[in-house]
Simulated scan of single mutants.
Amino acid sequence: MAAGLNLQPQIASGLLYLDLSNQGLTSIPEEVFDITDLEVLNVSNNKLTCIPEAIGRLQKLARLHADGNLLTSLPQAIGSLQQLTHLYIHNNQLTEVPSGVCSLSNLEVFTVSNNNLSTFPPGVEKLQKLRDLRIRGNQLTEVPPGVCSLSNLEVLGVGKNPIRRLPDDVTRLFRLKTLSVPNCQFDEFPRQVLQLKTLEKLYAGGCKFDIVPDELGNLQHLRFLSLENNLLRTLPSTLSRLHNLRVVQLWNNKFDTFPEVLCELPAMEKLDISNSNITKLPTALHRADKLKDLDVSGNPLTYPPKDVSEEGTGAIMAFLKQEAEKGELCSQADKNETIVAYTI
């Protein structure tokens, strides 16, 4: 099995590292488990169906990359790797996670997205150093009990699960910066999210929302907002408070008119509002002078004219600015005429 493979570990970022990724492996060579000083093992993107219990011999292992394989289970011995800080097992065929994982008290990053999990092991609340938990693309019907007790959690990804609501105590995640809930099955926008004042990125596409609550404007640190693939026709005026918002994704919604509140976002650099029913862009959009990437394709736009729209963001913004200035000149001329008429 080891023929042709380089089983000589290297030092990378100060850690003893063995990279066996993308080798077409169906099993991990036994010799690997003799490298007892190994700190990082990468066996991602192979054809592994299991990881042997011998993994327990690698007691110094800090990072295990086993994503992109055909794993249907994990060894119980994984729970003995007490130095483990990063565990990547996404893109496999796991139906369960051994309970021992919840005893990995130093674990900081745990990704188990795109598997076949329908119940998470109890004891998640013991992973108090966990900063990043990604469990999207499974069969979970709820956020695992205990997740909301992880006071150091900064990233939580639970999208593409048949989850109907978020737990009320998600508000206890007072360090959360990124929340990803796309393609869940919420009955309405989860209002608990609107109390997460530290949030910087919110991914909530494909949830069939038709209304976004006004309280969205309370998320003052928000830099990235993803609400594509919903049923939105309007946006709350409170969005104008989000002075740090840089990226807004709104494609595949039901807007008949361009939401004017988007013109009030001073930091906005990228806006995708393609594939709706918008016929006209407001001239006020030119005030978003940091906007360098605007996608309005797939809308029945008549203003700006098609030839302008097809030239891209720069041409559109220049056109809107020119039109706004023309409007201001006309307005001033009308005002002057009124004054003259009044004095006569």
Rank of each mutant, 00 (worst) to 15 (best):
N336F: 10
G79C: 05
L153M: 04
L294D: 02
S297V: 04
S331G: 12
K290D: 13
D295W: 00
E323W: 01
F224W: 15
G56Q: 04
L7M: 12
H90M: 11
P182S: 14
N106H: 13
F174Q: 14
W251S: 08
R175L: 06
L262I: 14
L15W: 02
D256R: 12
L271Y: 02
L265F: 00
Y303T: 15
D210N: 15
K335W: 11
E142D: 11
G100T: 07
V193T: 14
P122A: 15
N92E: 03
L271D: 01
K280W: 03
F33C: 01
L262W: 12
R136H: 12
Q249R: 14
W251Q: 13
C207K: 06
V158I: 15
D295C: 12
F110C: 10
F110V: 11
S80L: 06
R246G: 12
V212Q: 09
Y17M: 03
L225P: 12
I135Q: 03
K160E: 12
Q192H: 11
L320Q: 04
N45V: 05
P162N: 04
E200A: 13
P75L: 01
R164H: 12
P259G: 09
N230A: 07
V155E: 03
V124L: 15
S276V: 01
P162R: 10
T234F: 10
C102Q: 07
E125I: 00
R57F: 00
N115A: 08
E311T: 00
E328D: 08
G157E: 13
L156G: 07
M317T: 00
L173H: 10
E30K: 14
S103N: 14
S99R: 02
L7S: 11
D210T: 10
T72L: 00
N252G: 03
G100F: 03
C148Y: 09
